[in-house]
């Protein structure tokens, strides 16, 4: 019992909590109002960056149940049809996690381009869903601008994630994840 509450485990627990707090913070950045012109269209997809990055480098940090809950909350808080983003996020996590060995062996630029493709695919899926649903062709520039801004901000976010990744406990030694 004393092993479980060792100082090492407590430090690792704090590190994991820091990772989760940062993920939650980025999640809220997708929801809040910036009161800036065109922020509804030109807005980074922060939560997608989280799902993509951790699905490659630490899949156990963002379990499917966690991704599902984030998707449901996203739909609840942004007034989307409930379940839409839960589906998209779970599918993205599933595909990226299955391809993680490929990405782990690639240079950073390929990982970056992989994110651009993932982001475009997700936003295109949203665009197609709403276009079919409302029988109205939505402005496609939103998809392009959203993908572009998310791709541009990806290195900055991954830089911070890398710092967190370095302090996380090795999976083999962690009691938590």
């Amino acid at each position: 019992m004393s092993d479980f509450f060792s100082s090492q485990n407590i430090i690792w627990f704090k590190c994991l909590s820091l990772a989760h707090i940062f993920i939650f913070f980025l999640f809220t950045l997708d929801l809040i109002s910036y009161s800036v012109s065109y922020s509804d269209v030109v807005r980074p997809y922060f939560i997608l960056i989280c799902i993509y990055f951790w699905s490659i480098y630490r899949p156990s940090l963002l379990l499917p149940v966690y991704v599902f809950i984030l998707g449901i909350l996203f739909d609840f808080l942004l007034n989307y049809p409930i379940g839409l983003h839960a589906i998209l996020f779970v599918v993205v996590q599933w595909i990226i996690r299955d391809q993680r060995l490929f990405f782990l062996g690639q240079p950073y630029v390929i990982v970056w381009m992989g994110f651009a493709l993932t982001c475009f695919s997700v936003m295109l899926s949203e665009w197609m869903f709403f276009t079919i649903l409302s029988d109205n062709v939505f402005d496609f520039y939103g998809v392009l601008y959203g993908t572009l801004i998310s791709t541009l901000i990806f290195p900055m976010i991954t830089l911070l994630f890398n710092l967190i990744y370095r302090i996380l406990p090795p999976i083999s030694q962690s009691h938590f994840l």
């Binding site: 899949p59 156990s60 379990l63 499917p64 149940v65 991704v67 599902f68 998707g71 449901i72 049809p81 409930i82 379940g83 839409l84 839960a86 589906i87 779970v90 599918v91 996590q93 599933w94 996690r97 994840l177």
Partner: peptide, 25 residues
């Protein structure tokens, strides 16, 4: 954890999300 983290978990939550979407409509 392995069950939740594996494909079974993804399939389960995918079906659950589809269920939510059906209810939403």
């Amino acid at each position: 954890l392995a069950l939740l983290n594996g494909r079974a978990g993804s399939v389960f939550f995918l079906f659950l999300a589809v269920g939510f979407l059906i209810i939403a409509f």
